[in-house]
Design a protein around this nucleic acid. Sequence first.
DNA 1: TTTCCATTTAGAATCATTATAAACGTTTGC
DNA 2: GCAAACGTTTATAATGATTCTAAATGGAAA
Lengths: 150, 150
Amino acid sequence: METINPNHTVESLNDLLTAHDIKPTSQRLEIARLLFAHHNHFAAEEIFSMINHGSHSQINSASQNSVSKATVYNTLGLFARKGLVREVIADPNKVFYDPNTRPHYHMYDPSSGELTDISADTVQISGLPAAPSGREVEGVDIVVRLRRLE
Amino acid sequence: METINPNHTVESLNDLLTAHDIKPTSQRLEIARLLFAHHNHFAAEEIFSMINHGSHSQINSASQNSVSKATVYNTLGLFARKGLVREVIADPNKVFYDPNTRPHYHMYDPSSGELTDISADTVQISGLPAAPSGREVEGVDIVVRLRRLE
DNA sequence: TTTCCATTTAGAATCATTATAAACGTTTGC
DNA sequence: GCAAACGTTTATAATGATTCTAAATGGAAA
Ligand SMILES: [Mn+2]
Ligand SMILES: [Mn+2]
Ligand SMILES: [Zn+2]
Ligand SMILES: [Zn+2]
């Protein structure tokens, strides 16, 4: 289920960040690569440990590419603010970061911690109320909560 | 927008807890009354401060009805486990407790912290995938995220 | 260079929540 | 009624994700 997409060169990631008005630094590229190479949802702590304890160096294969915890959090917040990634609120004790910003929904299994995508193509929702005055709808989140079969 | 429902006597709350296999204690009744008298979603910390600093004594009007923070958290967890209330995950830094356990959806405005109900009657969803094998769907959460109009 | 400004960082602080272990209350067994 | 047993409540400590602070770093500009 874990596919690594090699179609992200350092240059294309550079362009991606630049297009989102984010100055590409080595730390930001490292974090972006993690998110966009794996098609997966990650929490900040996971990204932090993948970068520091995992074997995912590609940009600078010689050094151990460490990024501080503060920078991981700052960077993910920045990415979300700039619309490069999306925050998914499905678990009360961690925020997931989703490299897919197009409309789609999620299925969450708290017992395994697995968060998977539901394509928006097949899903139809209707009858949702309009935003109250002075507000607009930023997005519609659907989370199908799973549990182990009794 | 804050309506207090007086249709909850101590006896009816007693029965409600008992029906959900929860032994009614004064602390549990106090917390249940807060949730069911107001038709509102509350976080644990809100309930804690409403009980301790607010003016909501009705069961024992003489004493100041204090309930410890640990008991507030324990009780809300118990209520949720027993199906008396429902947890709503809409804000990354607090869990809301919802006295309405029937299917319905939510609208959330992070800028005000307001969480409001969307009736399930008017909403149609279709095309959601089935649960993977070994799992079942516990529920489908919809959160319409709002933001201030630019 | 020297200055400037953004970025990164270690570490402290925050805050919601959970764990611990003792105190308390109520039920049960006699 | 009395005491063990058990569930409940509590103060307090611990946890863990996240944010804050204030200093260090590093590249671009002057
Ligand atoms: Mn019920
Ligand atoms: Mn948070
Ligand atoms: Zn997703
Ligand atoms: Zn609700």
